[in-house]
Design a protein around this nucleic acid. Structure first.
Lengths: 205, 205
DNA sequence: CATTTTACTTGTCAAATGACAAGTAAAATG
DNA sequence: CATTTTACTTGTCATTTGACAAGTAAAATG
């Protein structure tokens, strides 16, 4: 009973921290602000997470947990290894589906891109940990799914896709003001997903 | 003599502010830190720019000045209007060239993307000004160059291209640590430029 | 039921922040 | 050359920051 409450509160704080940090940046956001969003006292953050950096780490863990769940790259990777059973058209469509999932994830969680773009004064320690613990494994799985891409092009495709998927959802207000299209609408998300799916995996003829 | 020195100092401060704000974010960066990068006293920022927000605005102006110069969209736009004189292949290559310029600009000035992704506590006023004054005109010129894209796809292509071009240069350390490729190298920049040029404007067959 | 543990709040602190007032020296002015 | 203007520095101020110590009430424990 006590443990459940504790975990619920911690999760509440972590979620608030993730969204606040993604929105404003690590250095810019204050622990008091996170606390107010999480609807707890500021002292409680220190109680549960000791320092701001530890809280940041918990938020990152949480983000990549969601990412791994939502993307289900492990499933797609499994299918990719089953390539012999697939026609080329089926493989293409599987890869398009993977891209669509990525776009939908960015739409639902603009935090991801913002999180990766963060720099802080003591950036290095946090970045290295993030890359080694979470980014490298993700990229490896993804590259298995995109098995047909020449190895030299892979980093370019990877980052091109990340950016192409995510940016539009990171600046929804600017986008709507500039183009008239609201990228928060499901229709816009699906259009973007489809646009990128066929951009990166063109139809064959 | 007095005026020249004044302008030189102001430019020095603005450049420092641009790079600092792009790196850390508006709220996160301190005027003292900007001053130290610009190698002037903190009081001088207040003297020249009164408030931090005014300094931010000057930095944004500076960024978009560089952008307009470097991209030369006006020239390309002019060529685009000359479409009748062009073969399809020539138009394709002109558009690829436009994309390459955009990629090279992002490589040289990662500030742009970071700047656009900034949110601050009083975000709205700054964003609205930025969009109306600088982003809208840029997008309009760009859409003229990309004349063959269906109007409904334009916002998607626009933001896809921005993200696909820029992200990799915004996280060079992460990229190198994760993939082994250093996106600061000219060879990597040109490869990225070419990859995107042919991604967005495929070869015809 | 008496005691201990613990999830959480409040109050406080030194350090850092943006702004600004007062001062300075050198260039411009007439 | 005497005076004014101005580009710039230094010192200071109220406010905000992350951290932490002390306290509280309720749940767990035995």
């Amino acid at each position: 009973m006590r443990k459940a409450q504790r975990d619920a509160t911690r999760t509440q704080i972590v979620k608030a921290a993730l969204s606040c940090i993604a929105e404003r940046g690590y250095d810019a956001v204050t622990t008091r602000y996170i606390a107010s969003v999480a609807d707890v006292s500021q002292g409680l953050l220190t109680y549960h997470f000791k320092t701001k950096e530890i809280l940041w780490r918990a938020a990152a863990e949480h983000l990549f947990e969601i990412l791994d769940e939502s993307l289900g790259l492990d499933i797609l990777e499994f299918n990719a290894h089953d390539a012999k059973k697939q026609t080329v058209a089926e493989r293409d469509e599987m890869q398009r589906d993977c891209i669509r999932r990525i776009v939908r994830f960015h739409a639902k969680h603009p935090e991801l891109l913002r999180f990766m773009l963060q720099k802080g004064s003591d950036n290095d320690s946090r970045t290295e940990w993030l890359v080694d613990t979470h980014i490298k494994p993700s990229l490896k799985q993804f590259s298995t799914v995109m098995s047909h891409i020449p190895e030299k092009d892979l980093p370019h495709m990877l980052y091109a896709l990340s950016g192409a998927s995510g940016i539009i959802f990171s600046v929804p207000d600017e986008c709507e003001r500039a183009t008239g299209m609201n990228p928060r609408l499901t229709s816009a998300i699906e259009r973007h997903a489809d646009y990128l799916a066929y951009l990166f995996i063109p139809e064959r003829n």
